[in-house]
């Protein structure tokens, strides 16, 4: 059944594309790049169109770009070369005159940068997650102490091994075992939120100390790293990245996405008025579904609104 349905839709798609090409004089990619608003609506449409392409040259191009981004080679001057090559392949295959359609060249190139930049970002985030937190590594240790200083600027840590870690929501007296499968990514996420969004992070940390609705800041944070990674991997997060990123997406943008999730989760948690921390998995699941729903709207913009009760 599915095969027949698939056959008809793909057949109909070809007929419709041929018809539109004849009447408008533009190929599908051009119609998208001129017709769709910039950001997620346009980039996602280009991505879909490229993935459905039957042209062997386009298929080869896609495989090449996948390989480049999986190996983190989409960078600096190489990136410009690669984008140029990708655009000229499409111009050639679709017989587009770049002098007339210079706007297409510009728009399409931006889309390619975002589509494969996202893929590259996923590879980068995964490699950071794969680095286990190692207390023999001075760099890792320095980052951990930085996290303390950023979150507790007025309190000195008595000792590297200390019950005080629980004040910022680690489980015991040594955070090293708490990063688990999220590795260095979990620590980098927390550190970014604590240093780049100082006020919002302080705000969230103070909520985590609430006598009734309190929770473990760092542990919840590490669980949110897992959620952010999950949304990135499933592709649900594309709306966020395609609408926020102006150039090649970097790891900073992932940290920003994480910070947004953390800030919003805290708000949602308090709204839910949970009786105790045992409600965490239920509330987390509901929160994740809400985020997924809002990411389905390709026009959505996500920002931390720090107008709240900071006074």
């Amino acid at each position: 059944m599915y095969n027949i349905w698939w056959f008809f839709t793909s057949y109909l798609r070809s007929v419709l594309k041929w018809f539109l090409r004849r009447t408008t004089g533009l190929c599908e990619l051009q119609r998208i790049c001129y017709g769709e608003v910039s950001g997620a609506p346009r980039i996602s449409a280009v991505e879909k169109s490229l993935n459905l392409s039957k042209s062997p040259q386009i298929k080869k191009l896609i495989a090449y770009l996948n390989d480049v981004s999986d190996n983190l080679r989409l960078k600096g001057s190489t990136e410009r070369e690669i984008l140029k090559g990708a655009v000229s392949t499409v111009l050639l295959v679709k017989r587009i005159n770049p002098r007339i359609h210079f706007q297409f060249v510009k728009n399409f190139s931006k889309c390619v940068e975002q589509i494969w930049g996202y893929r590259q970002l996923l590879a980068e985030v995964e490699s950071l997650r794969n680095i286990k937190f190692d207390s023999n590594n001075l760099e890792h240790e320095a980052k951990l102490l930085q996290l303390w200083e950023a979150l507790m600027p007025s309190v000195e840590l008595d000792n590297r091994i200390s019950k005080q870690w629980q004040d910022i929501g680690f489980q015991g007296d040594d955070p090293k075992t708490d990063f688990r499968g999220m590795g260095l990514l979990g620590l980098e996420n927390l550190l970014f939120f604590a240093t780049e969004y100082r006020m919002p992070a302080q705000h969230v940390l103070s909520h985590s100390h609430h006598p009734v609705y309190g929770y473990c800041f760092a542990i919840v944070g590490i669980n949110l790293t897992s959620m952010a990674l999950h949304l990135l991997r499933s592709g649900d997060a594309k709306t966020y990245f395609y609408n926020t990123s102006k150039c090649l997406p970097s790891i900073r943008l992932f940290h920003q996405f994480y910070s947004y999730l953390f800030y919003e989760f805290d708000r949602y948690w308090l709204e839910c008025k949970p009786v105790d921390i045992m409600q965490f998995s239920n509330i987390k699941l509901k929160f994740e579904n809400n985020i997924r729903t809002s990411l389905m709207d390709t026009n959505a913009v996500f920002k931390i609104n720090v107008s709240v009760d900071t006074v």
Binding site: R129, Q171, D178, R180, G181, M182, G186, Y215, C216, I219, V220, I222, N223, T225, S226, L229, I277, M278, Q279, F280, S281
Partner: peptide, 12 residues
């Protein structure tokens, strides 16, 4: 998959 485990807040 067991490679992505996080500390349990609450229960699973």
């Amino acid at each position: 998959d067991v490679t992505h485990v996080t500390p349990t807040a609450g229960f699973n």
